[in-house]
Design a binder for these strands. Sequence first.
DNA 1: TAGTATGCTTTACGGCGTTAAGTAACAGTA
DNA 2: TACTGTTACTTAACGCCGTAAAGCATACTA
Lengths: 203, 203
Amino acid sequence: MGSKQRREREKEALRQDILDAARELFVEEGYENVSMRRIAEKIEYSPTTIYLYFEDKAALLFAICEETFAKLAKKLENIMQQYADPIEALERGCRAYVEFGLKNPNHYRVTFMLQPDRKFGAEHYLREGSMGMRAYDRLRECVYACIREGKLREKDVDAVSQAIWACNHGITSLLITKPDFPWAGKNRLIDLTISTFIEGLRR
Amino acid sequence: MGSKQRREREKEALRQDILDAARELFVEEGYENVSMRRIAEKIEYSPTTIYLYFEDKAALLFAICEETFAKLAKKLENIMQQYADPIEALERGCRAYVEFGLKNPNHYRVTFMLQPDRKFGAEHYLREGSMGMRAYDRLRECVYACIREGKLREKDVDAVSQAIWACNHGITSLLITKPDFPWAGKNRLIDLTISTFIEGLRR
DNA sequence: TAGTATGCTTTACGGCGTTAAGTAACAGTA
DNA sequence: TACTGTTACTTAACGCCGTAAAGCATACTA
C-alpha cells in the first residue's frame, strides 16, 4: 500500500514545480511584475492551487529567498575557511556579498530592499534562524576574529559588522537600482568602496 | 476680463491640492499602498481628474520627489558654504544626507530604492537636471575640493563621490528597510559608518 | 442666443491577490 | 460491491487596482 507515499512524493513534486516556476519568473521580471495567475499558468494549474501549497505570494517569495540565501551563507563559510588572515577573509567576503547581490538582483531586492510591510518584510527575512541571518553571522564571526587579533581600531563587533554590511549593501543596491547612472566603472567602484572602508577600519 | 487668469490660478491651485494630498498619503503609507482613488477621495474629486493634471501615478510621485530633493540639494549647499574645511563639509554633508533620508523615508525609498522599471525609475529620478542629480553634484564639488587640497589618497572625483554616496545610501536604506533589526544603536552606527569611510579616504 | 471649448464625471476594461464554494477521483470500510 | 469520507484541484466571485473613453454640464465667444 505504497500509494500513500507516492501521493506524498507527487505533492512534494508539485510544490517544487511551483517554486521553480515562481523563481524563474521572479528572477526574470521582478517580484511585483509577476502575478499568481502567471505562475499558475506556467505550471498549468489554476491560480488557487498555489494557495494549497503556500500561504500567499509573500510566502512563496520567502521560500525562494531562503534557498538563495542559504547559498550565500555557504559561500561565505567557504571563504572564511579558505583564508587564515581574517582581514583578507573579510575583504573576500565583502566582494562575494556584492557579487552575489549583483548576480541575483531580484532576490537581493526582495530580501534587502523591499518596503517594511507591517506583516512581512524585515523580521521575516532577517529573523533569527533565517538564512539571511545566518549569512550575517558569518560576517560577524569574521569581524570578531579581526578584533581578537587586534587589527581594528573599533572593538564593538556588532557595530563594525553592521557598518560593513551597510557599506556593502550600499554599493550593491545602488548598482542594482540605478544601472543607467554614469558609474565610474562598476568593478572599480566596488573595489574602491570595499577597500576604502576596510582601510578605515584598520588600526 | 481677468477671468482667464482666475481660471488659470484655480487650475494651479487644484494641481497643488493634488500634490499635497498625494504627498501626505505617500509619506504616511508608502507609494505602493496608496491608490489614485484614495488620493482623489481625499481632495473630493473623481479619480480620473488627477489624470488631467498628471500623466500617471509615477509622474505624481516624480513631482513630489523633485520638491523634496530640491530641499536636500539646498541643505547641502548651505553646508558647503558653512564649512571652510572641505573634509569637515564632507562629513557634515554625509550626516545631513542620512538624516534627510531617515526623515523622509518614503521619498527616499521611491527615489533611490524602487525597482528599475523599464519606463520610469533610474533615468527619471537621476537624469541630468533633476534635483537628485543636483544633490549629487554638491557632493561631487565637495569631493573635488578635498582632492584639490590634497587630502585624499584617491584622485578620481567621480569614483570617490560615488563610493561615498554608496556608503551613505547603504546605512540610510538599511535603517529604513529593516527598522526591527537589532541595530547596535542607530546614531552610533551612522557615526561609525561615515567616519570610518572618511578615515579610509584620507591620505 | 447658438456654438464651442473647458473641466470634470461616469462608465468601463482588464488586470490583481485572495476566499469560498463546488466537484471529481480516490481510499477505506461494510 | 456499494457507501462514505477525504484529498486535490477548479470555478466563481469579491473588492481592489491603474487608466482610457465617452459623456455632460458650465462658461466663454461670436
